[in-house]
Design a protein around this nucleic acid. Sequence first.
DNA 1: ATGCCACATTGACCCATCTCAAACTTTGTC
DNA 2: GACAAAGTTTGAGATGGGTCAATGTGGCAT
Lengths: 239, 239
Amino acid sequence: MAAVVDDRAVCCGHHRVCESCEVRDLAVCRVLSPEELRRFAALARHVTLESGATLFHEGDPATHVYSLTRGYLRLCKLLADGRRQITGFLVPGDFIGLAFADTYVYSAEALGPTRLCAFARTAFQDWLARTPHLEHELLGRARGELAAAQEQMLLLGRKSARERVASFLLAFARRLGREPGETVPLPMTRTDIADYLGLTIETVSRTLSGLRREGLIELVGKNGYRIRHAAALEAVAAL
Amino acid sequence: MAAVVDDRAVCCGHHRVCESCEVRDLAVCRVLSPEELRRFAALARHVTLESGATLFHEGDPATHVYSLTRGYLRLCKLLADGRRQITGFLVPGDFIGLAFADTYVYSAEALGPTRLCAFARTAFQDWLARTPHLEHELLGRARGELAAAQEQMLLLGRKSARERVASFLLAFARRLGREPGETVPLPMTRTDIADYLGLTIETVSRTLSGLRREGLIELVGKNGYRIRHAAALEAVAAL
DNA sequence: ATGCCACATTGACCCATCTCAAACTTTGTC
DNA sequence: GACAAAGTTTGAGATGGGTCAATGTGGCAT
């Protein structure tokens, strides 16, 4: 369950090279020049997480920020009695560190085998101070995350279970860049979906079954789905 | 109900001077040097809103960003059938424009007589590109808003009505810098509180009455309250 | 192949909150 | 200072989604 800190990420090194990175055009580093990228990579450590492993815990001192290169993460907040709210799922290319300053405001857990680049927070902030276009990129991402957070508040505060599930299926497919009709992977469990949508696992299951029975979606195993009728699903989602 | 665009904000002018601004140490402009402030102020227009007036509508092209200098705003998102979610209340010193790019992602409405400084979004972004420490300030604010949004997701997704109301009373008092025991103004209606907490007006009213009956809070008219027993209220809030 | 285990589905019942309704209070207006 | 309008409180009954419980199922280790 532990995080494995890998070797240093070296550009032009023998092991892993930023130029051939899987998320080269998605991650924050996309705004760096080749020369900047080389120096930036010297700060990075590769981290590997096995399925279910915790990257960091809510409340712990925030020592690092991360860039997700492969796999999926869930961000969780807990109440004292164990109730859990998942505030977001991260996909490759996402940056982890926009929302917290001194301490992590959520826990981050791997939904499957996962790889990240880790940066010491202090070193990263020094870099930020000297690299305005990187800061600009982060502000743009923060903008997007804030807008998404507002949308999620609308969902959690005012939508019915059916609307929540439909909204989630549409948003997650779009997030992964899947066209309507393509199969969308569902790397999280029903429990994760429930804790993200403010529902119970039973309600999520019943609602998915209902949407399937009506022919709006198709369930591909337990870990995938296909949107059969996007327009109808959007109508259900009350967008 | 319309917004009144006032005269140009001139530093060293006859009308309103940034140096004597009520939110001099709270607003984003606090990071500007006196010389920068003078040039920055030349971009600003003062805007006055009467109670209930709409500053801008969700979905409209985002032409301006704002700094709130006096009064309170609510940020609203609407569903097609009229259901409303308030995603936040703004207090003096807050910046409006972190979450949106080309179009406003929520409507902004005045809770009472309100004053703002308005900046054309394009001009503001030009300034941002040339003023890294201003961008840094905005990123810091975005960080705080993101953390607050995550907290609100936990509230909306997992807390009971009682926990939501208690959390709100504590958070709003802290937001205004009020010590426990001081009277906190409540510039929004019960309907606003309900739409912020994902509840109905009746449930908010009943819950407030309950907390008052138990001696945890005191209601000061309809537009104010006092926290009588902060520790107990925190226990109720399930923080 | 088999059995196990975690996860998912389905059903029956219950309750926190919503809905509907009526009375009350405050604020502003003439 | 009386009325109207808007907002708030309180009560009684309805319900969407939660809780509890039982059954189904796919993946993996042996």
